[in-house]
Amino acid sequence: MNIFDVVGPVMVGPSSSHTAGAVRIGNVSRKLLGEEPAEAKIGLHGSFLATGAGHGTDRALIAGLLGLSVDDYRIPDSFSLARERGLHFSFHPVDLGENAHPNSAKLELKSRSGRELEVVGASVGGGRISIRELDGLEANFSGDYPTLIVHNLDQPGHVAEVTSMLSHKGVNIATMQLYRSGRGGYAVMILECDQEIPEEGVKWLEHLEGVVKVTYYSLL
């Protein structure tokens, strides 16, 4: 926390968690998709569902998917902006279970070129967020750091490959998490870094045997 978290942020109202946080979930999802979204099916859970319309949570999520920032005047008009930009969207109620944060949304996204992504994001207070699920696999990152997400087969050596690449590129790891669907199944590693990862490093990972998908979330 710094002084600009106390006196700030500058944001479109009415709620840091239901509006600003929702914009951020949209922003991070857009970057994770890596392309202009063309289709978005959005499930609202808990308090997002109960008070979302009154807080503009729906318009905030769409604004975020369009790349608007939390202080953009156009957030209330994001639905018409989405129509202009060819983003088709719909909302539905969703129950993500007891363990899900009350301010959660599930976004099923498709880009124009057909790239697909499923994200579950939670707004955890004061406009801060946490991405809780990516393509059905558990995750936990804030979008405050450059983040590398690697989906791979659960076999020895992949962590070493990724960390040696980062070491080679002079990138320091801030946090690292590992999850898997089951022994020998699919695994995901999520690394929050202190520096941006060069594009060729990310590309190199994509070509490794056993690596299924590489997603890079850049702050740039």
Binding site: V7, G8, P9, M11, V12, G13, P14, S16, A20, G56
Partner: peptide, 21 residues
Amino acid sequence: ESNACMKRIVAAPTAGSCGVM
């Protein structure tokens, strides 16, 4: 009121209390 109507404000410290400062 501007905050409730989705206008731009400074959350200081929060959006709900943005009118005080």
